[in-house]
Amino acid sequence: MDAILINKNQKGGEKIKSKGNYSFIMPLTLFILVSLVFLLAFTVYISLTNVKFGDLQNADLVGMSNFQSILTSKDFWNSMKFSLKFSLSVTILETFLGFLISYYIYKHFKGNKIIFTLLLAPIMMAPSLYGLMNRILLNNFVGLIPGYLSYLFGINIDFFNPNIIFYTLVAIDVLQWTPFIVLIVYSALLGIPKQLFEAAYIDGANSFQILMKITIPYVFSSIVAASSLRFLEAFRSFDTIYVLTGGGPGDLTTTISIYIYKVGFQFGRQGLASAAGLILFLLMMILTFNATRLIYRRW
């Protein structure tokens, strides 16, 4: 969610002699570089061993066999497929709803801080706790929603049964993260210069034309940025789904992150999990690189 915040080409003052002031950036640079290099190198090393249950001393180097096992593993590709299906579904829904809500707020409640803050509340909550909240809301023992569905309409639904669990998880993600799109798109809407609307109005444009020709083009890059970030985040979902289903029933809702967690910490096969992690890392780097290009196009 950060990349879009920075105006890439903005000049921040002329260059100043910076001799002796490297101490300003050295601590941060060192911390990040050392952590990243160490973690990546160590991940590569682990991925080449058959380490089990954290017993690094007695592990042997096994070459590329972990990568081979992962790339031919049905579970790995199933979790990739689930993550893709899940993240595409939530991104499309959240982008659509997020734009509608932010435009609505912009039109009718512009500048109303309380409404805006209450709309944003879900994104401030821990995803794991938000998941648990929905478990309390949707379970069949004390849940408010199933309770009243059955009491008022005689509908008995188990929101966690295998047939509809996917939709339940999508709905929960949409509830929590649509406000994220609202935040970014609403901020972009606030940035539209008033003169644009006035000029269009004087030229006789109707409100639909203004929406299509001015408003949407003006915030389009923000919408793209927000939804790409949502996609990247949703693709690696862990917290909410883990507390709700643990990846189950079976491996029906196993995202790629849950898959790696299971392999690494439940089955204790850290070498295998590292290999899967590295494959995911390469994939995400390619995606991020392209997403960043999209996001920066505006500048």
Binding site: F38, L39, F42, T43, I46, V51, G54, L56, F235, R236, F238, I256, S257, I260, Y261, G264, F265, Q270, A273, S274, G277, L278, L280, F281, M284
Partner: peptide
């Protein structure tokens, strides 16, 4: 970067 990738090296 999905931090799950670094779970193994960090844990070990």
């Amino acid at each position: 970067i999905p931090l799950i990738i670094f779970a193994m090296p960090i844990y070990l």
